[in-house]
């Protein structure tokens, strides 16, 4: 399914990530998943949170640069080859992945967040595979 991911712009400076997590913590917002893309002088923090609207509100209030991005969230078996099979199906249909990250939820399943170049086509493929 398609969900909202929060993207945060961070300067490469100590304390910046801490600032963001503290703002969210103070608002009682839980982080379900996150990843950081970094360059030499800035980073992009990508977050999946429990309450998107509230998170955006408190972060903007705290002068944090935030935008929302649509991403695909799917469940995949926590077994060797499961992800490979999905990626093969996406590649076959010419879907390009801008970035992705994953976290295992339990012993049996993992959640995968994908930012594809074509959101619609991606969900289509995944639903055919009964994954999204």
């Amino acid at each position: 399914m398609t969900i909202k991911q929060i993207s945060v712009f961070l300067e490469n400076k100590s304390g910046r990530l801490n600032h963001v997590t503290k703002v969210l913590a103070d608002a009682g917002i839980n982080l379900d998943a996150f990843c950081i893309a970094e360059t030499t002088d800035f980073g992009l923090l990508r977050l999946i949170v429990s309450d998107v609207d509230k998170a955006v509100e408190v972060l903007r209030k705290a002068d944090v640069a935030v935008i929302l991005t649509d991403v695909v969230c799917m469940e995949c078996g926590n077994t060797p080859g499961s992800l490979a099979a999905i990626l093969a199906a996406l590649a076959e249909r010419g879907i390009f992945i801008e970035y992705m990250y994953a976290f295992s939820q339990a012993e049996t399943t993992a959640k995968v967040i994908i930012r594809p170049n074509d959101l619609k086509a991606c969900t289509q493929v995944l639903s055919e595979l009964e994954l999204a």
């Binding site: 991911q5 993207s7 712009f9 360059t39 903007r60 935008i67 801008e98």
Partner: peptide
């Protein structure tokens, strides 16, 4: 400063 609500989520685009 990047605008609070006007930047891009992709590193390549930001660069």
């Amino acid at each position: 400063e990047v605008r609070k609500d006007f930047f891009c989520d992709e590193v390549g685009m930001m660069l």
